[in-house]
Write a protein that binds this DNA or RNA. Structure first.
Ligand code: ZN
Ligand code: ZN
Ligand code: ZN
Ligand code: ZN
Lengths: 159, 159
DNA sequence: TCATTGTTGATACTTGGTCTCATTTAGAGG
DNA sequence: CCTCTAAATGAGACCAAGTATCAACAATGA
């Protein structure tokens, strides 16, 4: 079993458990969409998702895909972010608070944590607001794409 | 002259200078849209903006509004953010790096800075990415709305 | 004044997403 | 296994936020 497949089945199990926890029913459309989401190796756009779902079962409606995405977001298992080229959804299984970097070249996403995450809350309180929630979106270039961008033997020109 | 009006004229001047700096022409539609943007006391949705623009000059096309918004974003004078209820644009004149808190009740926006803003870049580097840009969106409740939410004499129930 | 080139508005189109509603189906209880 | 009900579905209309195209128009510089 490849690492990807392990990740997939874990993701699938977690997502199903999250739906169970909300007393939601097991249906075939849900199962299909969940499998597709779990199979996504990286962040995906709604169109990518709906296309892949339609490929497995053209009968499944667009609305159901969005409905499920919303449930998963509510359960904290996928996050939506607003990338320069459209909406991106990312599967996210980590439980402790963290943030995401998304590669603007290939879409690969990594997670990281801040040493002092509460700094935001404190800074906001200083201007009199009560913080509800915060979203930190980071875009950059992943190690693999950096490698490709600056091939060995042709070092980056000094800027 | 009220504080709001001072802010408006400053905003207007800054925005026109930004367009000048790009060698862009002075046109009536642009002027009108700029005035409306400058007159916005808080963050606004595209629909709010287009409605207000249409009220001043129903002849101005939706596309021109979006085109100008894009120019202003490029010049760093307005920021777009993805709020729970739709897109929000915020006029932003400060020059040094900062972030925004948006009140989820009334839309009022405040700015704040982090003591250690580079913490994000460092955290991202630690996972091997090169950071391009980051967006920190904070939503909360502004002092005024907090006041209204918890009126004097009826203290917040201990939770 | 005139020519150039940037800008505009109309219109069509795309993407992301919600709403409604009639039909289907999961799954609980008998 | 059957029955009933509430949940879930898909079709399709609808809406918001943009973008692309393109012919008409207008700001500026010569
Ligand atoms: Zn995550
Ligand atoms: Zn990459
Ligand atoms: Zn700002
Ligand atoms: Zn407020």
């Amino acid at each position: 079993m490849t690492e990807g497949q392990i990740g997939e089945s874990v993701a699938l199990r977690l997502m199903e458990r999250a739906l169970d926890a909300q007393g939601l029913r097991h249906t075939l459309p849900r199962r299909t969409i969940l499998e597709v989401v779990a199979g996504m190796g990286h962040s995906f756009t709604p169109t990518e998702l709906t296309e892949q779902v339609a490929r497995r079962d053209p009968h499944i409606g667009r609305a159901s895909v969005f409905r499920l995405l919303q449930l998963l977001r509510g359960a904290g298992l996928v996050e939506r972010l607003h990338s320069p080229d459209g909406e991106l959804y990312t599967l996210c299984l980590a439980t402790e608070h963290h943030h995401h970097v998304t590669c603007t070249v290939c879409g690969r996403t990594a997670t990281f944590s801040l040493e002092d995450d509460d700094a935001v809350g404190r800074a906001v309180e200083r201007v009199g607001y009560r913080m509800d929630h915060h979203v930190l979106q980071v875009f950059g270039v992943c190690p693999a794409c950096l490698q490709r961008e600056r091939p060995p033997g042709r070092p980056e020109a000094p800027q």
